[in-house]
Amino acid sequence: MSPPLPYPSRAEAHDWAVVLQVPPRHKLVVRRVHVDTPSSSIQVALRQHPNLREAATIDVLERHLEDEEYCSVLVSIGQDITEDQGPSSLWLGSPTVSCCTVVYPELSIKSEPRSSRTKLEEVARYTSPAPPESYGGDDLVTLTDCSPPLSNAQPSSTFGDEIRLLAQTIIDMGVAKSDASAQQQYRKLKIFSGNKPTPTGEEAFEVWREYTSQVLDEWTCSELVKRQRIMECLRPPTSTTIQMAKDQHADVTAHQMLETLVRAYGRTEDVGQLMKRHLDLCQKDGEELSDFLQRI
C-alpha cells in the first residue's frame, strides 16, 4: 500500500492519475473507504450508477491511507467520466455501512492556440503605418508628412486602420471567450425533486444534502449566483418550496435555502420522539385546563 495521502483534492487526484500514467478523464477517487472494504464492493456500487452500467471496465488501481481506518481509492473507468456524468457519493456496505464521497481529477481548460494569437498580433503590427526611408536633402520625408490627417475619409488612408482594428477585435473576442469558458467550469449540483420513491438519476436527500453543503463552501461566487445555481438543480415540488421561501424573504441566502429543504425533507426525529410529542399534547388526569393550556 502506498504512503498516506489524506483527503485528496481534485488537483491531487489529477497528479495521482498522472503518476500512474493513466488518462485523468478515465479516473475517479473514492474517499473515506474503510481499509477492509474489498475492491468488488466498490466496483458493484459504481456499476449501479446509470451512466456506468455499460462501462467497458471498472478497475481499482491503487489505495492511499487517510488514517488507520480509512483510505482513498483510485478507480479506472473504461470511458470518459466527469462529475456531471458520474456519482458524487457511494454507499458501501462492507465491512461497515458508510457514505463515501467521489472526487474527480481536475481537468485543465484548453486555451486559445498561441500561434493564432501571434499571427493576429503580427497582422496588427505589420499593418501599422511606418515612416518611409530617408534619402537626405530635399527628398527627406518624415513620419508626420506621410501620416494622413484625421479628417481625411479616403478608403486608401483608412484601410490599414481597419485591418488593425479587425485584428485587435478578434484578439479581444478570443480572450473574452476564454474567460467565459473558465467561469462556466464550476462544480454543478445534482438534480433533486424530493419525490418518493427517489426517481432514477437522483439521490436520496441526505446524500444530496451532504454533497450540496460541501459544494456551497467551495464556490467562490457571489450569493446571488449561488442561489441561481441551487434553483437550477431543483425540480417540483422542491423548487416550489424554495420559491415560496424566496417570496417571503427576498434576501434569503443559499445556506438558508438548504436549511429550508432540510426542514421539509430531512428526518430529524425518530418514531419514539414523535410519539412522546403526541402524548404531551394530551391533557393529563386531574390537570386543570389553565395549566394544560399553559403547558401547550
Rank of each mutant, 00 (worst) to 15 (best):
P132C: 00
Q85I: 13
G136A: 07
D179L: 12
A11C: 00
V102M: 02
P105A: 03
R10N: 08
F159G: 14
S98N: 04
D36I: 07
R267I: 13
I170E: 08
R277I: 02
L65N: 12
F192L: 05
S72V: 01
Y104L: 00
S108H: 12
S213F: 02
S41D: 04
G174S: 11
E66N: 14
R164C: 01
V271Y: 05
E162D: 12
E162A: 13
G286E: 01
C146Y: 01
Y126W: 12
R209S: 08
V207C: 04
T241R: 13
C282R: 12
L120C: 10
G137Y: 03
D145S: 12
D84A: 10
R31Y: 10
D251I: 08
R125A: 15
L258F: 05
H26Y: 00
E288P: 03
L46G: 03
V252E: 02
D145N: 09
V19W: 11
A176H: 06
E202G: 06
V175K: 13
G93D: 12
S193T: 06
C233T: 07
T253A: 02
E202S: 05
Q184H: 06
E210A: 13
S290H: 07
L20V: 09
L274G: 02
I42C: 04
K119M: 10
L234W: 00
V123L: 14
T241L: 14
T212W: 09
G86S: 04
A264V: 14
R10S: 14
D291S: 09
Q48G: 10
V30D: 01
E232P: 04
D36K: 10
E269P: 02
P197C: 04
D84I: 07
A124K: 14
A254D: 05
V60E: 01
G286I: 00
S290D: 06
S89F: 01
P87A: 04
Y104W: 03
K246S: 05
